[in-house]
């Protein structure tokens, strides 16, 4: 009996190939394929209904899609910058603390320890216009006598979502920037003092350039996170009111699972992924560049 003889490298790679195909390749190919069909979850046989680029054409001409796209970019821009500034401030303060720093560092991580779903529920309660903490506090302090519709007004709802997002993720920046602060060599900072820098000048000309790689790492991680933001928004506003907090992935999720139009949802998903890829590549470029400026790495 002649046994089939595979080359050894293939045998060795086979487990990896099988696992990768099952986990990554097949879903990827399937979803890509389905984005060219009119696939509806409620009618499984529609998977064979090839419609060519129809879904893509529909997405790029859909105002709702672009509104969600723009809102996601806005959330990215505002949340990331706010988190960076707050995280930087937090890290600078913690780094100056002389005792109990370990405890503070652990406490900084607390917001990251909760599931985004729970954070969503928490802030949904906090910003509730009737029983919410914020309105109660504002009213007891006499700052306002009306119930502010935090999650009902479109702009306020976006603000509330950004607030929740910043609350959960500022510590990502805080921790990474703190690591950056610990890694700064002492010598250039002392040289800057002798060279006549005020503390503000030392920070701007020496500390900050050393922190930039760490800031860009945090930005890259967080841009992926925010670009796929779904859970907090889904819980807090469900994309409402009247789609005014609709983000890319809440829109895609609704289209795919509520409206059951999976082919169309997958097409939008593929366009959206470019957003995440764009930001990640952008921040990695900046990271490499800032490292090169410091004479680190290639």
């Amino acid at each position: 009996m002649k046994r089939l003889k595979l080359p050894p490298w293939l045998v060795l790679l086979l487990p990896a190939i099988i696992i990768l195909s099952a986990v990554v390749l097949i879903p990827l190919v399937f979803s890509l394929y389905s984005s060219f069909t009119s696939y509806r979850l409620t009618r499984p046989d529609s998977i064979f209904n090839w419609v060519g680029l129809f879904n893509y054409e529909k997405a790029v001409t859909d105002v709702k899609f672009w509104a969600a796209f723009g809102r996601t970019v806005l959330l990215l821009a505002v949340a990331l910058n706010l988190e960076m500034l707050l995280g930087l401030g937090l890290a600078l303060m913690v780094s100056k603390v002389t005792s109990g720093q370990r405890l503070l560092r652990t406490m900084m991580m607390f917001p990251m320890m909760f599931s985004p779903i729970l954070v969503g529920f928490q802030f949904k309660f906090i910003f509730n216009d009737n029983v919410g903490l914020v309105n109660n506090a504002l009213q007891s302090l006499g700052i306002t006598d009306q119930a502010i519709p935090w999650l009902v007004d479109g702009n306020l709802a976006m603000f509330s979502i950004i607030f929740a997002e910043v609350w959960t993720a500022t510590s990502v920046f805080g921790i990474l920037i703190l690591a950056g602060l610990y890694a700064i060599p002492r010598d250039p900072l002392e040289a800057a003092k002798v060279d006549g820098c005020t503390s503000l000048q030392s920070f701007r000309y020496v500390t900050l350039p050393f922190l930039m790689p760490f800031i860009y790492i945090a930005m890259a991680i967080r841009s992926l996170d925010v670009a796929r933001a779904y859970d907090i928004v889904q819980i807090m506003t469900n994309g409402g009111p009247a789609r005014r907090t609709e983000l890319l992935w809440t829109l895609i999720g609704r289209t795919g699972y509520v409206d059951a139009r999976m082919g169309y949802a997958n097409a939008m998903g593929y366009i959206s992924i470019f957003l995440a890829i764009f930001f990640t590549v952008y921040f990695f470029k900046k990271l490499t560049q800032s490292r090169r400026e410091l004479g680190m790495g290639a």
Binding site: P185, D187, E190, A191, E293, L294, G295
Partner: peptide, 10 residues
């Protein structure tokens, strides 16, 4: 002038 030069690398 510092022992390890302490130049600003950037």
């Amino acid at each position: 002038v510092f022992q390890n030069y302490a130049l600003y690398p950037h």
